[in-house]
Simulated assay, not measured.
Amino acid sequence: MTTTPVRDTTAQDRQNPWSRPEFEERLRDIATTRYHDRHAFNVRMHEGALTPAELRRWIANRFHYQRHIPVKDALILAKFGDPALRRMWLRRIVDHDGVREGEGGIERWLRLGEAAGLDRERLWSAEDVLPGVRLAVDGYVNFCRLRSPLEAVAASLTELSAPGIMRTRIAAFEHHYPWIEEEGLAYFRTRVEQGSRDSAEALALVERWALTREEQERAVAALAFKCDVLWSLLDAVDGSGERP
């Protein structure tokens, strides 16, 4: 008796790239289902359940991430051979470092810290940065240093979910944490528009570069890794002190 060989559909399917809509759907699904807005610490923050000490601990440790954003973007920019791409990506560095002293996202985060009662010199000193936060941030910076331009850019696509969490955070801070001065929320307000713009640009690059199924899967994995970085950062912050 003869038998018909069973076709390995899984192997064959993996040779075929997803359509652009399906690829984008997969990226957006990762950015939605694994984003750190679902983390218990963020949920408690947005519900108004954090103590002042917990909120200050988050601000101080998140600053360690914020101050490294221009570093990772400089590493990504250095991978580009196209001057037009470098000019586009350079704007991200300027957004955080500013054109001159007293401007940019890092300065706005320092003002958030001051509005919450933290000293900016102590924030810069990194004395309060937890080991788990250092490990998560170092892992992300090194990822951008060592991986391909596709993977480094794809990892930035957590920005797809950033505008939503910023709007939620602004409302939560205004309602639940009125002891933080209004000026301290400037970082969140600015990132609503910047996040929308940055994610659209990065998504266009990833869709243009990821032409094979393997490249698409590497892009999805890179985005999942970045979600893990942000989640791990909150794990460290949430686990470092007693809950009220």
Rank of each mutant, 00 (worst) to 15 (best):
M1F: 04
T3N: 09
T4Y: 03
D8C: 07
T9S: 09
R14K: 11
P17K: 02
P17D: 05
S19D: 12
R20D: 14
R20I: 14
P21K: 02
E22W: 00
R26H: 14
L27Q: 03
I30M: 06
T33Q: 13
R34L: 13
D37H: 10
R38I: 10
R38C: 08
H39N: 09
F41L: 15
N42L: 11
V43P: 04
V43Y: 01
M45Y: 05
G48T: 08
T51N: 09
T51P: 06
P52K: 04
E54I: 09
R56I: 06
R57M: 13
W58T: 05
W58G: 06
I59E: 03
Q66F: 06
I69M: 04
V71A: 08
K72A: 11
A74K: 04
A74I: 07
L75P: 05
A78V: 06
A78M: 12
K79H: 07
F80N: 04
P83S: 09
A84S: 14
A84C: 06
L85M: 14
R87S: 10
M88G: 11
L90F: 06
R92T: 14
D97M: 12
E101N: 01
G102D: 04
G104R: 00
G104I: 01
G105T: 03
I106N: 01
E107W: 00
R108Q: 13
R108S: 10
R111G: 04
L112R: 02
G113H: 02
E114F: 01
A116D: 07
A116C: 09
A116K: 04
G117D: 12
R120E: 08
E121C: 09
E121R: 13
R122G: 06
W124Q: 13
W124A: 15
S125R: 11
S125M: 09
A126C: 14
A126P: 02
V129S: 02
V129F: 02
V133G: 01
R134D: 07
R134G: 05
D138C: 06
G139R: 00
G139T: 01
V141C: 08
R145Q: 13
R147N: 14
P149Q: 05
V153I: 15
A154I: 07
S156Y: 01
T158D: 12
S161T: 11
A162M: 10
R167E: 13
T168I: 10
R169E: 12
A171S: 11
A172I: 05
E174I: 08
E174A: 12
H176S: 12
Y177V: 11
Y177D: 11
Y177S: 11
P178S: 09
W179T: 11
I180N: 04
E182P: 05
E182F: 02
E183Y: 01
G184R: 00
G184E: 01
R191Y: 12
R191V: 13
G195V: 10
S196M: 11
S196L: 12
R197K: 14
R197L: 15
R197A: 15
R197N: 10
A202W: 02
L203K: 03
L203C: 07
A204M: 08
A210E: 02
A210L: 04
T212G: 08
E214W: 03
Q216V: 06
E217D: 15
A221M: 08
L223C: 07
A224Q: 09
A224T: 11
K226M: 12
D228P: 01
D228A: 14
L230E: 15
S232C: 08
A236W: 00
G239N: 07
S240H: 07
P244G: 10
